[in-house]
Amino acid sequence: MATPSGASTEDKRSYYLYLIPGAIGFIAIVLLPQIANFALSFTAWKGVGTPRFVGLQNYEKLLTDGQFWGSMSHTLLFVISMTIIPVVLGLVLAALLFDYIRDEFGETVSSLFRAAFYLPQILPITAAGVLWGWIFNPVGVVNIILRAPGLDGLAQNWLGDATYALPAVSLVIVWIQVGYCLVVFMAGLSRIDPALYEAAELDGAGWWQRLVTITIPLLAPEIFVVVLTTLIAALKVFAPIFVLTAGGPDNATLVPSYLTYYHFFTTQRVGYAASIAVVQTILTIGLAVIFLRFQSSQAGKE
């Protein structure tokens, strides 16, 4: 998009006025708390009273804190369940709905599916989490269904056993995330020229070939956006963990955000909590920058 060539510098300067409300919001809600948090990470503080400067002590402790490293390794798994699986699943489902279900069963059925997949995004996460808690309860729906045909061996203590808690929580997260990916991808698909598909079909390309050769390359911008936003969401995941397992059993599903919350609000090691938040922020921003670099270099190639 070209800049309007006729605009003088004075006109352009007046545009900055429109940035002020946003800038105030950004400074008040994002920047100042970040700076305060960064400053607090060098102190010992109980949440009230005067913070005491302790230098790098919090960060030194972080290096040897098993809970922290455990939570970081769980984050890697949540990248799989919040980003990789939903993106792949979302892509396949979007393509299916867009050029198979819609063609075969009509617009209504396709919209119905799209709405159904998106529903978890609209539900309050706490309400959905409580429901999933009941579903996964040892005497909950999942186990009742498994036991009914005699599959007692498959019934598990889903959220109460370290082996199953992480996959169970991941499943809930996939359920939440797929709708988001799906809707963005479907919006992207409507941008693609149908003539391309028709031409490919005439040349004898099957559904899978059309997905790989047309859909995925042309959806690249949407895929980048979705991967980036879900990646950031995965690094700071909190609500599903808080509602479903509170990090348990025995810290099997602990994540950095929950650890920050725990130290901030229950052990009252606010400074230590701040240092965890700082590490998490740096990681998130770092990943985002790398990713955006990669995206612009890809975009340059086209």
Binding site: G133, V139, N157, G160, D161, P249
Partner: peptide
């Protein structure tokens, strides 16, 4: 019950 780790107090 060994499943007690998946059960909260109200349950």
């Amino acid at each position: 019950s060994k499943d007690s780790t998946g059960i909260k107090d109200p349950d």
